[in-house]
Design a protein around this nucleic acid. Sequence first.
RNA 1: GGCCCGUUCGUCUAGGGGUUAGGACAGGAGAUUUUCAUUCUUCAAACAGGGGUUCGAUUCCCCUACGGGCUACCA
Length: 499
Amino acid sequence: MSVRVRFAPSPTGPLHIGGVRTALYNYLFAKKHQGDFILRIEDTDQNRFVPGAEQYIIESLKWMGIEPNEGVGFGEGTHAPYRQSDRKGMYRQYAEQLLHRGLAYYAFDTESDLEYLKNTFPNFKYDAVTRMHGKNSITLSEQEVAQRLAKNEPYVIRIKIPEDETIRFTDEIRGNVMVQTTQMDDKVLLKSDGMPTYHLANVCDDYIMKITHVIRGEEWLPSAPLHVLLYRFLGWEDAMPKFAHLPLLLKPDGNGKLSKRDGDRLGFPVFPLEWKDPVSQEISSGYKQRGYLPEAVLNMLAFLGWNPGTEQEIFTKEELIQAFSLDNIHKAGAKFDFEKAKWFNAEYIKHTSNERLATLVKNIVEEKFGVQEDANLTQAMALIKERMVFINDVENFGYIFKATEKYDSANLEKVNKIKDTLNLDSLEQSLLHAPENASDLEAYLKTYVTEQTLKMGDFMKFLRVSLVGELSGPAIPDLMLLFGKTESIQRIKNCYSQL
RNA sequence: GGCCCGUUCGUCUAGGGGUUAGGACAGGAGAUUUUCAUUCUUCAAACAGGGGUUCGAUUCCCCUACGGGCUACCA
């Protein structure tokens, strides 16, 4: 049987990196086994619907390069529709099936009824004991139930949890898990608005869509026994998918699961793309806009909770697919580490071709420093990419794209000494005949220093300040070759004139 | 509170009955680089605690502590 997995977010806001990692693991697992990866949108709660969230999820997956081959936004496959609100009609029959077989029941309890029960029973949960105190089709006469139904009284359908059984299942990451049904409660399956709850919809859809492995966050572990029971009640036990509950992504500081708030509080993005809240208009930063490379984020995320068991850390997506296995997923939650994320990005930038970097950087550079020639931009990348952590760091190298006009006086002071010994005309003549490759040019400059009996340190510092306006930066010969002779000489003259 | 899951350097982790407990990030020191960055070398840094089982436990079992999750007509 071929592997089919799904990523099933609800469109209640932007997808955060915890969700992205869940999607990634599903993707890697599917690709590893030549299976299908499905995107299903779980929008059964209309109250929490956020406009734009679904589109955001789709775009984020695209940017990350973890594209589903079936599902909302990715070409509907054989099991369309993939949005639960569009599947609303099909859930009721399953709830009713359970109803007829005595495995579920109608409950008419109002909000205040429930409130009363909560106050009456300590640690209240709707279960074998307390349901006898509720207004439901177990306590009410058949006639009354029929009447209430006829009057269109609001009701929910609840699962009838067996009184005292042990539910066991095997989690692919945690091993055997068992829970007593006495600890479970009669969860609502179908809400009074006719929508299924997560539990019902999820189980039905996974079954119908022939999902073989449910790979999801650990927050679902407590309700997994309910899902197991649902498969059994629905008669689908043989087709029940395997479960793998992933460790959570935790806040970098303190405790708790990583939340949408943490990013802005701690100064790192928790979202793949920038998100503007449609109500508050509040903007949350995204990895893309902050200058991350998607493959770096992918690599970084893959290692939060999983490890190949070797010492290799930089993995292409293909390598990740080859190496990925549920067996190597850690059980404990992982604190998100911003420093490591930066390191991954810097590594990826260093190993990205100058051509590609140039295209990524082009808009930023041109917006800030004016139009650039592509060839020039590409060449510039070679000089600065090992000094960049983020794509946006290109902003720090404005001197490459635009000559300094007014030099910083403090820096000028540090190279002032050259004024007495340097012959500007001879330097210009010499540079006009300089060789066109870095190592020859370097030797050429050294020879010039010797011939002119200049001090190497003073001369080099002066050249550096002339070229970039600062005392640190890329190698001088590289800069001169990048700028070309005319531009280099012009910068030197300009600087000299301000000494 | 109840239930479930977890616990190896500060962080991400490897390992697994007998190891100098390995790697990476971050941190320290040094080398290279005319500078900065890169790169390289190097240092420091961990098996939560207590009981068992065992010739031997960081590894297996139990308890405690701590952390996390769930406990909605939210997912």
